[in-house]
Design a protein around this nucleic acid. Sequence first.
DNA 1: CTGAAAGCGCTTACAG
DNA 2: CTGAAAGCGCTTACAG
Lengths: 339, 339
Amino acid sequence: MAQKIKLSTIADALGVSTATVSLALRDSPLVADTTRQRIKEYARTIGYIYNRRAASLRTSRSGIIGVVVHDIMNPFYAEILRSIESELDRSRQTFLLSNHYDQLEKQRTFIDTLLQLGADGVIMSPAIGTPAEDIRMAEENGLPTVLIARSVEGANVPVFRGDDAYGISLATNHLISLGHTRIAMIGGTDHTSTGRERYRGYVAAMQAAGLEVKPEWRFPGPRTKQAGFEIAGAFLALKDKPTAAVCWSDLVAIGLMNGIARAGLVPGRDISVTGYDDLEEAAIATPALTTVWNGQREVGRRAARVLLDRLNGAEVAPTQELIKPELHVRQSTGRPVER
Amino acid sequence: MAQKIKLSTIADALGVSTATVSLALRDSPLVADTTRQRIKEYARTIGYIYNRRAASLRTSRSGIIGVVVHDIMNPFYAEILRSIESELDRSRQTFLLSNHYDQLEKQRTFIDTLLQLGADGVIMSPAIGTPAEDIRMAEENGLPTVLIARSVEGANVPVFRGDDAYGISLATNHLISLGHTRIAMIGGTDHTSTGRERYRGYVAAMQAAGLEVKPEWRFPGPRTKQAGFEIAGAFLALKDKPTAAVCWSDLVAIGLMNGIARAGLVPGRDISVTGYDDLEEAAIATPALTTVWNGQREVGRRAARVLLDRLNGAEVAPTQELIKPELHVRQSTGRPVER
DNA sequence: CTGAAAGCGCTTACAG
DNA sequence: CTGAAAGCGCTTACAG
């Protein structure tokens, strides 16, 4: 590697000051056209690489935005990330991604890294148990924060997520209207706002229809395809077996359907199943999954937009925005079959 | 936000020099135990945040490692990333992730960002059409590079990937040994080393067994579940329809099986299907997918390890390492059914 | 074991 | 329109 090329290398070669070079490269109108062109041209030919660390140290803006979610491998988050990415790309921000796997320690380490790097902001789907204090700390240290998918009690920042109680009621009511009376709720955890809201919505819909909610019809826990698959046995072994299952997510639903099929029953005919999220995959599952669209794109896009607005100095109200979910009916639900 | 706390804040408060504070915080043995403890204790209580930009400007090590792949949403890459992540975590490196979606421009922008941030190295699954020159440029500018999953002709850096020709021959020979003679190859592209190798391996296995390879039995293109699903129609419409399909990946295979099921046939009985990668999902697909384990974990782990070694000054040979794939037989393959 | 000082490569008032 | 100079917050020889 040759001698490091820096602003002063260019300045010396062209007989101008580093100030002029700096301004020219950033297209400042202060610099004469011809000067600017000469400088940019020369910088290109010698392969100058801008040193963002130096600039950032001086300006205290880094161009980095952190994004931390439970697990980027989960398609639900992946779809959100996709839209965040396209939004940030447009404004030339670099985005730093991390999983926290619901480990508070990992999340804290990441926030710390962001602070050390002087990140401009962070979008997070907070880990289970995140105290409002953690978010306040980030904000106080100059790291504007926006929450997605889950809220944190007492945190004074914008939140974008779906209306979970309403969304799950769409699925539950759909099954009720098909004639199901014994409906299980599979997956999810009470440790997140999302989990609590969905269970609440399910119970409310059942009770509103005058239907019984049996404790053994609830299978908390599963949040992956694998876990949905594995729970099928216990579900099918219930006496007075429910004829339908409202699942916590598409992943759980698809896993469950695979488990049901493996047991020789036909999901969508013998057992109706609903998902939640409407992942791309839901439409090509067998049978195609009836599910609740949860606005991933919308959540990501709006969270990124609001954060960028904050960075540009806009005052943003720390309010919670609930995206309205929609029911997408496909083949995994039908009238109950009594046998 | 209060006045920014920096090394000198601590130094002044404690009546020592910034040099001592700097050394103490990094646990240098040069500093007396009691001094160090006093300093660290004080730093904690006032909430000091280390400024990595400043440090990095001075030391020219940033602690950042870039990782760029086609698409992190693809479980194949996600599984690789997972193992890279756990490897890098251990050595306290921050990893900066990006998709290139096989757009050279996007990949270049990312490499540029890494250079500007002074990243310590990059692990990449190169975008289609990446010239060796791009990699040489990164290396010459002090960005050590390691390739995964795909190789680049003429690039003089370590590569970790599966032995594709061998792997696909395992799948093809398995079908042949079950008695299949009309076997299609579905998905993949000739634009990547991976795609070429797998097709080559399939053709070689067929020919070695004295079987015919019809051009219309090849369906290039599909690389997603969705695309596998959509190709099912064309595949099933072939005259002299093949009794088996070797798929380019698990995603394509699972999509294809869904498409076959949607058409009223039973995958694994009417049509045998093999995947490639052995994603976590393969085992819970319906039917469970016979596939080729492609060593994602291994690829990620070793790529990260080698890069870290290079950062620590080890000489690393720029050789290509082929991970040996293994056939995992499940329920999606069986003897051919003539009807 | 500790301190004074230079320097990493930018940007930004300020002066002309 | 351009230049001289200070300063962002660290680390690292060097001296003691």
